[in-house]
């Protein structure tokens, strides 16, 4: 069987491959934001963290020769941004959303500034795992070449769901996020828990950023991110603060984003830009269908709000 013979079957295959590829940064950023929001804070700065992670991951991978060191560096850069956000937000009368926007702009600007020398050189990329080895077909083999970070994300999502329910840290995190009164009465240091949560969230967002620059085709440029960080924050709300739903939402979003290129590959070029807008239209549509005038969002952490 040759690639051409696959014909229309190439479309769902390309969508699947695209879903896995595109969803990886969404998955990491949304899992990170899920942890942060479970503690009762919103970190809108994750777009900046993502770009910062992409830059620092690429730089460290290039300088050290190890892409995994790059991923670690990206995570640490993200954690630093998270700690910065948490520190500023723990001051009295500081609004977490405003701080997040400021940090988003700061992160993007800083990454562009520090990343200038790394636009040209080629850094080693992350490996991917060839799940398509059994097939003779090049298209199938390509589509089933799954990057290693996605696998980690697939394991991380159910682990987080389990940890929220079955570990001390999970219970404390949910307490702080759902009722500050209860946390105070139990004697937990609210700001410290939120600091930990925001730092972990930043770490994961940084790792998500390193995927952008270290996975195939693997390069660092200023146009690398197209708002994945911000979109992932919206995905968390869409996923009702449930890590497994974050995973499915990321896949859905990635699949929708891959629709345009997939159709183009079988020769349908009409409405290409319209298909590119599919993920956003899909999100909007699902949001409209699932919201209700006389019901508050179920599952929202009680301390989450815009009026502080």
């Amino acid at each position: 069987m040759s690639g051409d013979l696959l014909g229309w079957w190439g479309v769902p295959l390309a969508v699947l491959a695209g879903a896995i590829r595109v969803s990886t940064p969404f998955l990491f950023v949304s899992l990170g934001e899920c942890i942060t929001e479970k503690s009762g804070r919103i970190n809108l700065g994750l777009e900046g963290t993502l770009v910062m992670g992409a830059m620092s991951g690429y730089a460290v991978s290039y300088l050290s020769g190890s892409p995994w060191l790059g991923v670690l560096a990206a995570g640490c850069a993200g954690a630093v941004f998270g700690i910065l956000h948490a520190l500023i937000c723990s001051l009295p009368r500081v609004n977490d959303i405003a701080v997040g926007i400021a940090l988003m702009l700061f992160g993007i600007g800083l990454a562009f500034f520090l990343g200038k020398p790394f636009i040209q050189p080629q850094a080693p990329n992350l490996p991917s795992i060839p799940f398509g080895w059994w097939s003779e077909n090049a298209q199938v083999r390509d589509a089933l070449r799954v990057n290693a970070l996605f696998i980690i994300g697939v394991i991380l999502a159910p682990f987080l769901l389990w940890a929220f329910r079955n570990t001390r840290w999970g219970l404390i995190l949910r307490t702080v996020g759902d009722s500050a009164d209860a946390a105070l009465a139990l004697g937990y240091a609210i700001n410290r828990v939120r600091m930990f949560a925001t730092a972990s969230g930043g770490f994961l967002a940084g790792v998500g950023g390193s995927f952008l620059s270290l996975s195939y085709p693997g390069s660092w440029s200023e146009g690398l991110s197209s708002g994945q960080g911000i979109t992932a924050v919206a995905l968390v709300i869409f996923a009702r603060w449930n890590p497994m739903l974050c995973f499915w939402a990321s896949l859905l979003f990635g699949g929708a984003a891959a629709l345009g290129p997939a159709l183009q590959s079988v020769g349908i070029t009409q409405g290409y830009y319209l298909f590119n807008a599919a993920p956003y239209m899909l999100t909007l549509l699902i949001m409209i269908l699932t919201c209700s005038r006389d019901r508050t969002l179920a599952g929202a952490p009680g301390e989450l709000g815009v009026t502080r």
Binding site: R165, N166, T167, R168, W169, L171, I172, R174, T175, D178, S179, D181, A182, L184, A185, L186, G299, P301, G302
Partner: peptide, 22 residues
């Protein structure tokens, strides 16, 4: 001072001072 999004059992166990890690 109960956590609204948790079950009664989770709230009771949460209040223990020797809450195990898992």
């Amino acid at each position: 001072t109960l956590v609204p999004d948790m079950t009664v059992a989770e709230n009771l166990v949460l209040a223990r001072t020797d809450l195990p890690a898992v």
